[in-house]
């Protein structure tokens, strides 16, 4: 019974991987139709539209949340670099 379950779970896992690969391929295919032309990057060049517009302030915020909450990482590396209490 356990081996059947294991085989079923392995099949489900490979189906899931195939599904994820398909979704990723669809996304990448879709990505070809999204985007902006080179002369349309004017707004994206503004500071407010950068991936991290204010890195110094983000780092300060991360430091506070690192010392008060259990979660880290996401935007950047998870390490806190301090023994915050």
């Amino acid at each position: 019974m356990r081996s059947i379950c294991r085989a079923w779970s392995a099949n489900r896992r490979s189906e899931l991987i195939l599904l994820l690969c398909g979704a990723a391929a669809a996304c990448l295919g879709g990505c070809a139709s999204v985007g902006a032309k080179p002369w349309e990057h004017d707004l994206l060049a503004e500071r407010a539209m950068r991936v991290d517009s204010y890195p110094l302030q983000s780092a300060m915020d991360d430091h506070i949340y690192f010392s008060k909450e259990a979660s880290t990482g996401g935007r950047s590396y998870a390490g806190g670099g301090c023994g915050c209490n």
């Binding site: 999204v34 707004l43 994206l44 991936v51 590396y77």
Partner: peptide, 18 residues
């Protein structure tokens, strides 16, 4: 991955492991 979706829309998806 960071994707310019349009002239007005920028999206970022990231995964981190520690």
């Amino acid at each position: 991955i960071t994707q310019v979706m349009s002239r007005r829309w920028l999206t970022t998806l990231s995964y981190s492991y520690a």
